[in-house]
Design a protein around this nucleic acid. Structure first.
Lengths: 230, 230
DNA sequence: GCAAAAGTGTTGCGAGTACACCCATGC
DNA sequence: GCATGGGTGTACTCGCAACACTTTTGC
């Protein structure tokens, strides 16, 4: 055991920005804090990293514990380590970025340890604890950038979706309107969507055809040098 | 002081991948380790984060201490935290990505603490300590991706450079040849280069005109919604 | 029959790519 | 005078953006 171990160390946490799409509204999962500091304030789900788990495992564990959520996409976002970011002392946090299908039974059970969990529109969140507003802003930026050149948007939709749903998703994330015909042309020409023999139900107008994203085909095309774009 | 502080914590380090461009060869800075583990092996410069400094400050400090280098570009790359990545125990490292102008007096003094520092071609490095090969690979990927949509390539060149130098830089990083006329047309049309009334010296052929990258103009255009691309 | 959303093609423009020759300089 | 790299313009292609009307369904 080396001498380096005798120096004081920053504490290490993970925090997760979990996005979900609810009927054309982009939501983020927040937890109401039950302990000091910032008791009662809303914050990103997260917690301390244990000695024997990887960072990603820690993120998954916290999400399961605090909200009963198993994200369909999870990636590391950024590490925040300003000395003053936590009033308790030096705490460095590795932020993760997650996408979930709200359709799944990801209906957010109340958390294990008496805190509350809830979905907020990303355009209208309360003031957050710590530097979590910065973390959220960074995550939004990442989502906006990445959705255009990687097909991660599908992780926010139910397995079967209409093209209009897909278009709305892009419009909300990119914060601009898209042309219906051009959008359909582009996305269908990539040949990544499986056209199903089903239509949406219970709508009071012409029912739209349902599609499924073909993960396998995408992996194949990707290996062959194909690049998803918008 | 909360109970959370009584749990054991991972140690926290920073490691830096520093790139330099040497006459058409892309180089990375490595340090020969002077202490266990991996004594004598080559590794990325780095070290433990102190309690009172930010992560970026830690990266800058280590670069100054170990190699006397002050990078012209420094950004966070990725955080590596597999429990088994360090034989001494749990060590999480925040990797940084740096670019330096080799022309500057960044000639790598021998390091402070008896270790040696040297530049290696990125295509021909020795086996590295820890998971530093993964870190290097991640950094190369980032450089390759980022150089196309952000004008960071200039941080690898001397303040005054020729268009051919610039083109070689892109060719080396992107690992493909570019067309001279198209390259010049594109880069000049962005109006980011200041055409100087000077030419390169001491070449045994027609001397090329020198240019300078206009950082100020770029910042302005960026604010106005301009996007650099290739 | 009316409201509401689904579905469907064509055209013009601009950006990217491919491509070859003469010029200036040092030796 | 020859070797070495510097410097320059055009034509074709393809992808992107703009744009409006008919169809289906529920009420």
């Amino acid at each position: 055991m080396s001498h380096t171990y005798e120096y004081p160390r920053p504490a290490l946490t993970v925090d997760c920005v979990v996005f979900g799409m609810d009927e054309g509204d982009l939501k983020v999962l927040l937890i109401q804090r039950g302990v000091e500091p910032f008791v009662g304030k809303w914050a990103l789900p997260g917690g301390f990293v244990r000695m024997e788990e990887s960072l990603e495992d820690a993120a998954r564990r916290e999400l399961a514990e605090e909200a009963g959520i198993r994200p369909s996409h999870l990636e590391q976002l950024y590490t925040f380590g300003e000395p003053s970011r936590d009033p308790r002392g030096r705490v460095v946090t590795v932020a993760y970025f997650a996408l979930v299908k709200l359709s799944d039974h990801n209906v957010v059970h109340a958390a294990t340890d008496a805190r509350e969990a809830a979905w907020f529109s990303v355009w209208d969140t309360p003031k957050l604890a710590f530097d979590h507003s910065d973390v959220l802003a960074t995550a939004l930026q990442r989502l906006k950038g990445k959705v255009r050149y990687q097909p991660i948007g599908f992780e926010l939709l139910p397995p079967k979706f209409t093209l209009t749903q897909l278009q709305r998703l892009y419009e909300v994330i990119l914060e601009r309107e898209l042309d219906k015909r051009n959008f359909r042309k582009k996305i269908l020409s990539m040949d990544l969507l499986e056209e199903l023999d089903e239509v949406e139900q219970d709508v009071s107008h012409r029912a739209a055809r349902l599609y499924r994203f073909d993960h396998k085909k995408y992996k194949q095309l990707e290996k062959a040098g194909f690049n998803f774009e918008l």
